[in-house]
Computed example of a mutant assay.
Amino acid sequence: MTAPIEVSKGEVEAHPEDVLQGVPGKAVQGRSLGQIAWLRLKRDKAALGGGVVIVLLIAVAIFGPFFLQDPTVYNQELIDPTFQRPKSGWLYSGISWDHLLGVEPNTGRDMLSRIVSGARISLLVAFLATLLSVAIGTFMGVLAGYFGGWVDTLISRAMDVFLAFPLLLFAIALVGVVPGEVFGIKGNGLRVSVLIFVIGFFNWPYIGRIVRGQTLSLREREFVDASRSLGAGHGYVLFKELLPNLVAPIIVYATLLIPTNILFEAALSFLGVGVNPPTPSWGGMLTLAVPTYQNTPFFMIIPGMAIFITVLAFNLLGDGLRDALDPRAR
């Protein structure tokens, strides 16, 4: 029991409401899920660093070729005819003010312009293939998780078949039998289209399984039951209730799938089933570096570091997004 308030003679007791009446107040503002995720992401310096690197890579891939040399021009005057390597530069790299990353052995083509042009190919294939995988995987995963029964069984068995498929061998065989022109597309445009189709279409089960598992959990939640009780149809529940709650895991997995697709495209180009030369690609540059790496190791280091930095940046950003968008994260 609290002690009574003593009021001295001549003083008037003031009520708390009267005391606070003249105090300026500030309305409490709520934070959306996006704002909360951004605050978490800002605390992750590694993820922000990865995001900055990715933005710079995209900008360089889009605008860089307009400011650099032609990556297909030969500079034979820079090559030693005896050893077929650059005449000067550290580790016979041919580095100079005109060629900041040196030149290729045998051909003398500028390495910087070839790295930038290769970034355009790698990022284009990786982004479009990831978009295709996400679209197919999300659609099939939501259907399997929401309807269940024979629909779930059919889609799940299809996922198992795709996951057991020898994708690398199929890609090599498919590129080898594709004709020179399909639907008016030919040359490198056809090669890039085939790479996007192979990588994107056959990788959808990975994200499909994740979406299916999330949908199995979400379809039992109260907001789904409330929509059904109000007479909502399957389309409304799928597109208005389930898909908005699947955006976070889809974004996170997409950022982690992009570096995997970059590595896969580089592997295909390394095996000779990527874009046609002389169009540069990171995997193709590694292929050309193999016969000469003992005399010119710098030629192999540059495309290898480009792949390493790009994949690391996407992985750091993906890990940061996963922590930021996870509602159970601290």
Rank of each mutant, 00 (worst) to 15 (best):
K45I: 09
R221C: 12
R209Q: 11
S133Q: 04
G272D: 09
G320K: 01
R330A: 14
K42D: 11
I185M: 14
G272N: 09
A129N: 01
L100S: 10
I36S: 14
F298P: 02
P81C: 02
A254H: 07
W204S: 01
G10R: 06
V142N: 05
G50E: 05
G176H: 09
G30V: 05
Y146P: 06
V192C: 07
P71V: 02
L321M: 07
I58V: 15
H99L: 02
V177Q: 10
S133C: 03
I302C: 03
V247Q: 11
P280E: 08
Q35E: 15
R43E: 15
L132E: 05
H234T: 13
P205R: 00
Q76G: 09
V52W: 13
L101V: 04
W38E: 12
R219C: 14
N315R: 03
M159C: 11
L124G: 12
A173Y: 12
L101G: 03
S96K: 02
N203A: 13
A47Y: 03
F270V: 10
V19A: 09
V23R: 09
L218P: 11
I199N: 00
L288S: 14
P65L: 09
V237A: 10
L243A: 10
S88F: 14
W90R: 05
I302S: 01
Y92F: 14
A306D: 00
A61I: 05
S113G: 04
I172K: 06
I121Q: 06
I302G: 00
R330Q: 14
I199T: 00
V134W: 00
E220P: 09
V53F: 11
A306V: 01
P297I: 01
S269I: 01
F170H: 10
T296L: 07
E104V: 02
V53Y: 10
D80P: 00
F270N: 06
D110I: 02
D319V: 01
W150H: 10
Y253T: 12
